[in-house]
Design a protein around this nucleic acid. Sequence first.
DNA 1: AGCTAAAAGCTAATGGCGATAGCTTCACCT
DNA 2: AGGTGAAGCTATCGCCATTAGCTTTTAGCT
Lengths: 199, 199
Amino acid sequence: MRTPVPRAGLSRAAVVAAGAELADEVGFADLTMGLLAARVGVKTPSLYKHVVSLDALRRGIGIQAKQELGNVLARAAVGRSGADAVRAIADAHRSWALEHPGRYAATVRAPAADDEEDRRAGDEALQVFFDVLAGFGLRDARAVDAARTLRSALHGFVSLEGAGGFGLPRDVTGSYRFLVDSLVAGLQAERPAPESRSR
Amino acid sequence: MRTPVPRAGLSRAAVVAAGAELADEVGFADLTMGLLAARVGVKTPSLYKHVVSLDALRRGIGIQAKQELGNVLARAAVGRSGADAVRAIADAHRSWALEHPGRYAATVRAPAADDEEDRRAGDEALQVFFDVLAGFGLRDARAVDAARTLRSALHGFVSLEGAGGFGLPRDVTGSYRFLVDSLVAGLQAERPAPESRSR
DNA sequence: AGCTAAAAGCTAATGGCGATAGCTTCACCT
DNA sequence: AGGTGAAGCTATCGCCATTAGCTTTTAGCT
């Protein structure tokens, strides 16, 4: 078997990485093969030697972005627990999403039903939510509910903020703090058991 | 000044309404002038007699959808208050979003900076959130925070659910109930002064 | 009833984008 | 020195948004 690596410069990983950067600048939805080709110094059709389609490029960016976000969240939670950890990953989540709008949009892309690699990237990022919520004493179905709740709230906020969905007045960071505090208080509150079985 | 209304059938409103229906079927992002033209029984260029561009069509669908959603939420809250009202609009919000995915995506579109009509449609829908939260004794900036919090959480959940962002197991309706209950508990909880410091 | 202005529709055409086919060039290995 | 295969390029196709310019229809006036 040969190991031919003709020309220099490009590779699938390099194209995807450049695509992620470009998506942050022009928006994930407005990313085009032509724009990316110009960025990496090639003509449009040449990109197809590295990625099979625009959709495959988006998938690659999505997987990379899910991994990056997962790492960022994990780092933020190191050495913290309980409400403190929730606040830490909430802040990290919002900062990263605002700094990397294109990548963030890519993380929301749902994997195809049979796409193991993509699914795993998302699951690993999600695991951080579970780990952080472990300190709240939630089990089984409740833990799933809480992880979905936390993720939904954080995602909804930064998604609306990123889309310019909030009217001007009242500082947005203050509202975000309110959201996180409300959630923490809500998760800590006693509540009737809907349908758990353990205990 | 004459008032000529030649031909029959189409009008700006009819085109926008048909566009909203079609968006629910094919997705807001995948709505094309060609698809809509076929749906209303004309050739593509003829649509431009009624809407100035695809973007203008999207804007029109967005405004219509914001009004519809606002009405749906207001109806759901009639005769209810406090936690009961929050649960009612939360359920109505999710149901409507899942039944009308294209329209729902359109409601998230941020208005252009100088677009009064679009901004007003969004504000009127948002007003329902404020009204419902009035029962929680939140004032001024806190009321803004709470409205953003509630909207973010509801939007985040249905947005992720609609995108297929939740893994299969554990019933999604149960998780939604958990989210709403957590939020209600969090909003009712006592909490420290607004301007704390963290990060 | 007939005339007319303008809206509403159509065909043709342009430019951008994703994608494919097929040719050329270059790096590496023997 | 030559052969191989990846990487790049040009040419081309089809789809979509949009515009130009012609034709058809109809409201409203006389």
